[in-house]
């Protein structure tokens, strides 16, 4: 499991917390784009710590399917979220190009590293603020509050994800607690 792209080592918490994206003088924002089920998504580059090959995953039992498991990231145990399962209940199929994007999520004063599984990482893009449309009220097939906006790139729309919402530990851990298999009472019958 080698690091494909070391985006950056660390970002001051203040910066990462208050400013999800880098904005240069022209008002452009930097994003990492990736594909998931043939759709293009993007996340603010400041939330991205690194990108690694998929592998070495340990499943955590009694958790919802969108929590794929945990990996060893240089000694730290980092959970990995299957975005496709989170958005649409379709488990991501592993391919050669499947990657884990390690994101840094700031909640209050706590910083977590969470990995997201993506089909393929595309590139780092600058999207001018003028090219970003507000999220559609419906029709995007994923929850509206997961979307920060729609970026126009080469005539196509890219869904800019609101990582704080998508990877909200509070929401995810609550979902895990009410996991239909019920973690508290697993099947014991043989």
């Amino acid at each position: 499991m080698s690091s494909i792209l070391q985006v950056r080592q660390a970002v001051p918490a203040v910066l990462a917390g208050s400013q999800p994206v880098v904005r240069d003088d022209a008002g452009s924002l930097q994003y990492l784009t990736f594909s998931l089920n043939s759709e293009m998504f993007a996340v603010g580059i400041l939330n991205v710590k690194e990108i690694i090959e998929y592998g070495g995953l340990t499943q955590v039992p009694m958790m919802p399917a969108f929590i794929r498991g945990v990996i060893n990231l240089r000694g730290a145990v980092v959970p990995v979220i299957d975005l496709s399962a989170r958005f649409a209940n379709e488990t991501t199929r592993i391919s050669k190009r499947t990657c884990i994007v390690i994101m840094e999520v700031v909640e209050g004063e706590v910083r977590h590293d969470i990995g997201i599984m993506v089909d393929m990482v595309s590139e780092v893009l600058e999207i001018p603020a003028a090219d970003i449309e507000p999220p559609p009220s419906f029709g995007a097939r994923i929850r509206a509050d997961f979307i920060d906006g729609m970026g126009k790139v080469a005539g196509k729309f890219v869904i800019l994800l609101n990582i704080a919402k998508v990877l909200s530990t509070e929401e995810i851990s609550t979902l895990a607690a009410v996991y239909p298999g019920d973690a508290r009472n697993p099947h014991l019958d043989g």
Binding site: V60, M62, I67, V77, V110, I172, S173
Partner: peptide, 19 residues
């Protein structure tokens, strides 16, 4: 012991992880 983190705070039966 490596804590599993906030995502797994409601998970019962698993106390943590190790490498």
């Amino acid at each position: 012991i490596k804590p599993l983190g906030a995502l797994f705070q409601h998970l019962r039966g698993i106390g943590g992880s190790t490498i």
